[in-house]
Amino acid sequence: MCSGSSPKERAAMNNTQLELRVESDVVAARQTGREMARELGFGVADQTRLATAISELTRNVIVHAGEGVCRIYDRSDAQAARVQVVAEDKGAGIPDIEQAMAQGFSTGGGLGAGLPGAKRLVQEFDIESEPGHTKVTIAITKPRVRVA
């Protein structure tokens, strides 16, 4: 969709959709997420947490489902800065979400650290899956500092 534009240009829009087909799309997605977090005033630690979580989720789409999409939204309001990221695919789905979320569980020879690790890095984490559809939604939030 946004091919040709840089992570910076994509992050400047308040919502971006990236196709996930090849490995370099994982790199583009995490860089775009980082850039949006940076522009919304998140610090380097939060930028890195978000970029790492996006890397895990988008790689899962490519490795376990073949292809999908990643959407990155600016959901900020007057109270808080918030970046929401959705990774979605039409692959086989996750038969047992609880098992998939357990540290060390992998069907593909990985460390099985991706999903549980990503969950620990973000404030909001939601996963829905059925055969033919998997959707993982995450968000990081930072309350705005009030000047009294």
Partner: peptide, 16 residues
């Protein structure tokens, strides 16, 4: 290793 990378790895799981 950048400090924020080290922090993130620790948060994801010890001994990654």
């Amino acid at each position: 290793m950048q400090p924020s990378v080290a922090l993130t790895l620790t948060e994801m799981g010890r001994q990654l």
